[in-house]
Design a binder for these strands. Structure first.
Length: 591
RNA sequence: CGGGGUGUAGCUCAGUUGGCAGAGUGCAUGUUUUGGGAACAUGAUGUCGCAGGUUCGAGUCCUGUCACCCCGACCA
């Protein structure tokens, strides 16, 4: 492609409303243009990069036996109603009526359609396992788009779905995806870490997110400094320190005027926060049919409540913070609250495991200005659930190896879910096993955001001159810059361009006559093209053309005759580095 | 959805007390340059986000509204 013909300008300055560097650079380099909040056009350079990412995705999906299909973007409401997600998902799902008045939705994922296809195609255990995938635009009306391509409303996603007879089959395909995702990360030049994650609206049991670690990330991750333990903070576990408060003593009421927080209370009574019991209040909403419940989440005073865990344990559709009125309505007093003496069917008490283990804690007396000493779980109150609901924090202890945990930010570029039979049961997607029994097909679901991947690569590979893209996803491998001024020189440059194209070297050719050399260099570097060739009268005097790698200032002379083979060689070297990374990519080792 | 911010030339931004719509950059044309975002000259470019209102007169003041950005909540 000649730069004069390339659609998409480079910008000297980035538009003011951009914050994230990858966003600024992709705008400046002429990769993307924003049409509306979270809605972008991909210009030719981005389109080429996206195609390359998609090609890698296709190769890796094909390699694990998945078959490419394409499913509809517009779905009838019925299939979403069958699985309950019509009700469960908020305005993120775009709904509209067609001309006949039928409720329709824009697909935000395709579990329902896959289950529907499974129902029509899969009848016998002999047809399993199966895996299908597609690469397609999705629309999710996010409450807030941000960060350029990091979080958008319209985006390209590779989504795949596995179908198996049982959990064991699912585990095999899940593992295959896990390994494939690491290979994909390596091939595009990113180190992705797999973290255990919440299943969110997908449902199911096991899930991992593939994270690009970066301060611009939206997710908080708990990562062990020593071993491979890593989890989204939403579900991260940690080794909780224990303290011995002695054998259970008799409960006693104590005046604690004005001591409404754990800190106040500890100071007032001269005790440590870990000798108290913290109560945090939520309201669990269960939709229109079931009554809301007030959820009392109890953790030891030195811990924080993890509301994702509370939401999951409460099985609520929506979990929100309770208002003071809602708390007093069930007989508790904010600031002096505990579940002692509360017996109400509309209250769900969820206690962290520590609460049941520790003795003689201080808890609220449900009376303004009073607390209770020596409160003991089981004796003085009985939680509905005793589970883990404490938030892991930086500095906590790894549950696997005992080392320190750190908090890091990450961008979720992919996720994998073991769905089980939630969707297939709802849709009646069954098969007959060897024994002639009807069973629900076991599903898995796996996504990768293609544009988000590109954004992460741009974030990772850049310098003060612009993008510095890996060969595997750069729109062109070579930028050929001609500074020739004589007709003979220009002819020579044209010939070289033709030869490069003929040899299959993807080349961007800058022979613009009306811009200075500096502009050509700057554009080539801003666009992130890995290899640069300069041809000029001066270079010919030195024996041929000069070439250099993006990111290096070392120019090498190579004769005109050898230029094409030299470039092919350099490209192969760059590819080899990434292939090697792919071969050494992490593999599933979790049994 | 809550809090904050910004809307003036393609982009970055100035615009005083309410009194002719501006600069840099980019764009067009020409001349000179020519290996790191050239110089000079000439020129084109505006629904001052939109709609009302106040005023002799509004980019500027008032009301409403829309869009975009940031933080939070939310998030497959």
């Amino acid at each position: 492609m000649r730069v004069v013909n390339l659609f998409g300008e480079t910008l000297r300055e980035a538009p003011a409303e951009t914050e994230i560097v990858s966003h600024q650079l992709m705008l400046r380099a002429g990769f993307i243009r924003q049409l509306a909040a979270g809605i972008f056009s991909y210009l030719p350079l981005a389109q080429r990069s996206l195609r390359k990412i998609e090609q890698i995705l296709r190769e890796e999906m094909d390699a694990i036996g998945a078959q490419e299909i394409e499913m509809p973007v517009v779905h009838p409401a019925e299939i979403w109603q069958k699985t309950g997600r019509w009700q469960a998902i908020d305005e993120t799902m775009v709904r509209f009526k067609d001309r006949k008045g039928h409720e329709m939705v824009l697909a935000l994922t395709h579990e329902e359609v896959v289950a529907e296809l499974t129902r029509s195609e899969i009848k016998s255990y002999k047809q399993l396992p199966q895996a299908v995938y597609q690469i397609q635009t999705k629309f999710r009306d996010e409450q807030r788009a941000r960060g350029g391509l990091i979080r958008v409303r319209e985006f390209i996603m590779k989504d795949s779905y596995t179908l198996d007879r049982d959990e064991a089959g699912l585990a095999i395909q899940y593992t295959a995806h896990y390994n494939a995702y690491h290979r994909i990360g390596a091939r595009v030049g990113l180190n992705l870490i797999a973290v255990g994650s919440d299943v969110g609206m997908m449902g199911g049991k096991v899930a991992h997110e593939f994270m690009y670690l970066s301060p611009i990330g939206e997710d908080s991750l708990i990562v062990c400094e020593n071993c491979d333990y890593a989890a989204n903070q939403e579900i991260a576990e940690f080794e909780k320190p224990r303290y011995d408060n002695g054998p259970a003593l008799e409960m006693e009421k104590v005046a604690t005027p004005g001591a409404k927080t754990i800190e106040d209370l500890s100071q007032f009574l001269g005790i440590e926060p870990h000798q108290t019991c913290k109560a945090v209040f939520f309201v669990a909403e269960y939709g229109k049919t079931l009554k809301n419940k007030l959820v009392v989440a109890l953790v030891r005073g030195d811990m924080e409540v993890n509301d994702v865990l509370v939401k999951n344990w409460s099985k609520a559709n929506v979990l929100r913070t309770a208002t003071p009125e809602e708390i007093t309505a069930v007989g508790m007093v904010p600031g002096y609250a505990s579940s002692v003496g509360i017996t109400n069917d509309d209250v769900l008490v969820i206690a962290d495991e520590l609460i049941s283990l520790e003795t003689n804690l201080v808890a609220g007396a449900n009376e303004e200005g009073y607390h209770l000493r020596n409160v003991n779980c089981g004796r003085d109150f009985k939680p509905d659930l005793i589970v883990n609901i404490a938030t892991a924090r930086s500095g906590d202890t790894c549950i696997k190896c005992g080392a320190k945990l750190t908090l890091q930010r990450g961008v979720e570029v992919g996720n994998i879910f073991q769905l089980g039979t939630r969707y297939t049961e709802a849709m009646g997607a069954n098969y007959v096993d060897e024994a002639g029994q009807l069973k629900a097909v076991v599903m898995g679901s796996y996504g990768i955001g293609v544009g988000r991947l590109l954004a992460c690569i741009a974030e990772e590979y850049r310098d003060d001159r612009g993008l510095k893209l890996p060969i595997s996803i750069a729109p062109y491998a070579v930028c050929l810059i001609s500074l020739c001024r004589t007709p003979e020189g220009q002819e020579r440059a044209n010939t070289l361009y033709t030869e490069l194209l003929g040899a299959g070297v993807e080349t961007l050719y800058d022979d613009r006559k009306d811009v200075s050399a500096g502009v050509k260099f700057a554009d080539s570097e801003l666009r992130g093209i890995p290899l640069q060739i300069v041809i000029s009268e001066k270079s010919m005097e030195r024996g041929g053309v000069e070439w250099k790698l993006r990111g290096s200032d070392e120019r090498t002379i190579v004769s005109l005759d050898e230029t094409v083979s030299c470039m092919k060689q350099e490209i192969a070297k760059l590819h080899a580095l990434l292939s090697e990374r792919a071969e050494n990519a992490p593999k599933w080792d979790k049994g």
